[in-house]
């Protein structure tokens, strides 16, 4: 059994146990969260739109994606024309022009947004769509990744991720190109909580 061999080799070779360091709180002033977050999303190639009421969302979606023929949304406020619950084969989402999903939490230091499988509607949706919008409550901003991981539960669903911008690459001569394999654009819609 390879497992037994590997574990035995590790036991034989590992160093004496050292203590696990504890992570101190690294924070900065709460007032800076929103402007920092916006700056970082924009630096990552995304854009930020501030909305004030859920009623604005359908109109916002049409302004954001004027040419989109197929829109998929995991939010009840935006209908779209794909019923995500009916999608069995993920390949069927290939024609999606634009998708709107919900974000649970945004991180000011890097503009990353956490979304679980449930927020995405479908695991592949944020990637396969040509354009992506994430609706996030500004109340759900945190300073940094330490705070983010203390708030989220990474295994609440089978899949979850941080998204920090549109898909990009610099693999050809270090030239930055937006729109590699995933979504070509990212819009973050900041919508204050109503409850």
């Amino acid at each position: 059994m390879s497992k037994d061999e590997i574990i035995a080799a590790i036991r034989k070779n590992k160093p004496a146990e050292t203590a696990l360091p504890s992570i101190p709180a690294f924070t900065y002033a709460q007032g800076e969260l929103l402007p920092t977050f916006i700056t970082m999303v924009e630096a990552g190639g995304g854009r930020v739109i501030e909305a004030s009421s859920p009623d604005e969302l359908p109109a916002l979606a049409s302004t954001l994606f004027p040419d989109a023929e197929i829109i998929a949304s995991s939010l009840p406020e935006i209908k779209g024309n794909v019923r995500l619950s009916d999608i069995g084969q993920p390949q069927k989402l290939e024609p999606v022009d634009a998708a709107v999903i919900r974000g649970q939490l945004g991180v000011a230091e890097n503009g990353a947004i956490w979304a679980s499988e449930a927020d995405c509607g479908h695991r592949v949706l944020p990637f396969i769509t040509q354009h992506l919008a994430i609706v996030l409550a500004p109340e759900d901003l945190v300073c940094n990744m330490h705070e983010a991981y203390s708030r989220i539960q990474v295994n609440a669903t089978g899949f979850g991720l941080f998204i920090a911008g549109p898909s990009k690459t610099a693999d050809i001569e270090q030239s930055l190109v937006i729109g590699a394999q995933g979504a070509r654009s990212l819009a973050v819609i900041l919508l204050p909580r109503t409850d």
Binding site: I23, M40, A43, G44, V107, E109, N110, G111, A112, F127, N144, M145, H146, E147, A148, Y149, S150, V154, N155, T157, G158, F159, G160, L161, F162, I163, A164, G165, P166, S167, K168, A170, G182
Partner: peptide, 29 residues
């Protein structure tokens, strides 16, 4: 998982100078 807070802050900044990679995906099931 809390240790990812440390590593995700270090990885992309060290690798490419980005504050984090565009996608940080967590696969559990």
């Amino acid at each position: 998982a809390e240790h990812l807070g440390v590593f995700t802050r270090l990885l992309a900044r060290s690798a490419t100078g980005q504050p984090i990679t565009i996608y940080t995906s967590h696969y559990h099931r």
